[in-house]
Amino acid sequence: MAIGFVGCIGAIKENKCLLLTFFVLLLLVFLLETSLAILFFAYTDKIDRYAQQDLKKGLHLYGTPGNVGLTNAWSIIQTDFRCCGVSSYTDWFEVYNATRVPDSCCLEFSESCGLHAPGTWWKAPCYETVKVWLQENLLAVGVFGLCTALVQILGLTFAMTMYCQVVKADTYCA
């Protein structure tokens, strides 16, 4: 938002400094996004392992004071995606030190249903289920990314064009 504001003011006032600042900042953001995308695809396996480990650590914060957002997120994911745990429902056994799961893992939700037998819980692992869902929606994410890149490239092009025009006008006026 701040970068866009600099660009707007630079264009309205036809200020060389602001236009150049906008161009440089937008170019840095674009290059950073491109670098992160390349690194993401280059290190997908490492990111995959790290994400699973981190999610398993996060299970231990489920239901603790001050972690309402995390608790709600896990409950919503497990209910909506019909899954339980990161790699299996047994991930919850480490959290509760027992053979139980949160009630959001139950096939049919009822109070304390997570205390019943594993036959009443979702069997699908949440990590793989969400990963498959993301892969199925990869086209939408890709189109969004390409549209964002296109807008940034247009912004860079227009900013540099206007900067050159202002420099050219200053040269002829001087």
Score class of each variant (00 low, 15 high):
M1E: 15
A2T: 15
I3E: 05
F5Q: 12
V6N: 02
G7W: 04
A11R: 13
I12L: 14
K13Y: 07
N15I: 04
N15W: 03
N15P: 02
C17P: 06
C17H: 10
L18A: 00
L18H: 02
L19T: 03
L20T: 00
L20K: 11
T21Y: 09
T21W: 06
L25P: 02
L26P: 02
F30A: 02
L31Q: 08
L31Y: 10
L31G: 08
T34P: 02
S35I: 10
L36S: 12
L39Q: 10
L39F: 08
F40K: 08
F40Y: 13
A42E: 15
Y43Q: 12
I47D: 05
R49P: 02
R49A: 13
Y50M: 13
Q52G: 02
Q52L: 03
Q52C: 04
Q52V: 06
K56I: 04
K56V: 01
K57L: 08
G58Q: 14
G58M: 13
L61D: 07
L61I: 06
Y62Q: 01
G63N: 05
T64S: 13
P65T: 01
P65S: 10
P65K: 14
G66A: 07
G66P: 03
G66F: 10
N67H: 14
N67W: 15
V68D: 15
V68H: 10
V68F: 11
L70P: 08
T71Y: 12
N72I: 13
N72W: 06
S75F: 03
S75N: 13
I76S: 09
I76G: 00
I77G: 03
I77P: 00
D80L: 05
D80A: 12
R82H: 12
C83V: 04
C83G: 03
C84E: 04
C84P: 03
W92G: 01
W92H: 02
W92D: 02
E94C: 04
V95C: 04
V95D: 07
Y96Q: 02
A98G: 14
T99G: 00
R100K: 13
V101A: 00
S104T: 05
C105G: 00
C106K: 05
C106W: 08
L107Q: 09
L107I: 07
E108A: 09
E108R: 12
S110M: 12
S112W: 09
S112I: 10
S112D: 15
S112Q: 11
C113Y: 09
G114W: 03
L115E: 08
H116V: 03
A117W: 10
P118F: 01
G119S: 11
T120G: 06
T120Q: 15
W122Y: 15
W122H: 14
K123P: 02
C126G: 01
Y127V: 01
E128N: 12
T129F: 04
V132P: 01
V132T: 09
L134V: 09
L134R: 08
Q135S: 12
Q135Y: 15
E136L: 07
L139N: 07
L139D: 06
A140W: 10
V143A: 08
F144G: 05
F144S: 06
A149G: 11
L150Q: 05
L150Y: 07
L150I: 07
L150C: 11
Q152M: 13
I153P: 04
I153Y: 12
I153F: 13
L156E: 03
L156G: 01
T157N: 06
T157V: 13
M160K: 05
T161H: 11
M162C: 05
M162R: 12
C164R: 15
Q165G: 09
K168P: 03
D170H: 11
Y172D: 08
Y172M: 12
Y172W: 12
A174P: 06
